[in-house]
Design a protein around this nucleic acid. Structure first.
Lengths: 220, 220
DNA sequence: AATTCAGGTTAGTGCTCGTTAACCGAATTG
DNA sequence: CAATTCGGTTAACGAGCACTAACCTGAATT
């Protein structure tokens, strides 16, 4: 429930042993398995955010999800695969969500507003995943991180495309810096959240971040 | 040379074995030692930024500084002590620099401009240290990280004090969120810098970040 | 009801890595 | 010029950990 795509987008993303002999049949076991997988990803988000990828052992991960140790390998082929599934899921969610926002917007200004609201909402709702993303992406083997980076780049390009219509005539390189700066601004909240204690979702925080992001993006 | 306070602020900060029998005498050996220590901190900044604290071994660290393995323990009491010295140094530099900027400013508006320029300059010059700071601060044992966090908090308060004069009547909590958001915006550049390749210091990037930060901080 | 199979368990296994031990040679010191 | 300190070396130790092996049990299948 807490991590966005723990079950949904995660399943096709993770090429774990779970995909073997998938008959499509909905049995009691398959449900239990899906929920285990979701619990593992949720625990991974929390633990990786707290201690970093290398600071969490497979044993930690399993026991946080109610099983212990090597049972994790019934759901993921390796420890890296857990991180990969987590980051791929979140990146895919962001890309899908961003594209949907733009498609449902009547014009560029509304699209930019929508993107800002979407990103702020996401950052405030999933601080753990945000933190893992820009902390441990480099902990992945190159081939895995490339997939995540590709999704991430595509998401940035969604923003750049909108920005190029809001600020016509600006070079793409400048717009890309603008987009990254906005992400940094919006994603700054996980740095405030004191480890472990969830920050109450004050409305004024959401509004303040949106206004600052808007002002920064339209500056000059 | 590249990390700001490798030798200067690091010496009183790191309670390593180097402090023993410090006669103040400037001998050939002590100079060599200081430069070794600086080289170690510089290598640490680079390596920790690339692979994360837990992804770098003592052997890696030593050999990157021209010595190999356990020689590191002649300069630091532990691997954590290296990270601690690095982060303490940079946090102290930021605090000192920020205070100096404010003291030399005629008014709050100029002080805020000065702080922004200072932070942008620092972030563009030391992307490695920035990255290590908000990635591996939690890798420290609690007692060490508290010292760094105290310096960090003090630096934030310098910003908040200035902001409270630029935006009178705003609650401190709101100003603190503003300050953190500005840091996130300004420090976003390390996320663009592609691992290993140094980003050319384009002037427009510096100006753009300053304008965005200014607009964001004065928004609403 | 018999059989298969998938998801769980508890023991290893081999490797990495932080740290210490023991020793060495040169710069510093008296 | 002897004595000593100190920064460096290589060797070894011990812990932690990702991953594998062997086995067990109960749901799914026929």
């Amino acid at each position: 429930m807490s991590p966005s795509s723990a079950t949904g987008a995660g399943s096709p993303a993770g090429p774990g042993p779970a995909a073997s002999a998938d008959t499509g049949r909905v049995t009691g076991r398959s449900l239990a398995k899906a929920s285990r997988r979701a619990a593992l990803l949720s625990a991974a988000a929390k633990l990786f955010a707290e201690r970093g990828f290398n600071g969490v052992s497979i044993e930690d991960l399993g026991s946080a999800a109610g099983v212990s140790g090597p049972a994790v390998y019934r759901h993921f082929s390796s420890k890296h695969a857990v991180l990969s599934a987590l980051l791929t899921g979140v990146s895919q969610d962001l890309l899908d969500g961003g594209q949907a926002v733009v498609e449902n917007s009547p014009g560029p200004e509304e699209a930019l507003r929508g993107l800002i609201e979407f990103q702020v909402d996401f950052a405030l709702r999933n601080p753990d995943v945000i933190r893992v993303h820009d902390r441990d992406l480099d902990s992945l083997p190159p081939e895995d991180s490339q997939a995540v980076r590709a999704l991430q780049r595509a998401y940035v390009e969604v923003w750049v495309a909108v920005l190029s219509r809001v600020l016509p005539g600006q070079e793409p390189a400048r717009l890309r810096v603008r987009a990254h700066a906005a992400f940094g601004l919006i994603n700054s909240t996980p740095h405030i959240t004191h480890r472990g204690k969830p920050v109450r979702d004050k409305i004024w925080r959401r509004n303040l971040l949106e206004q600052m992001a808007w002002a920064a993006l339209k500056a000059e």
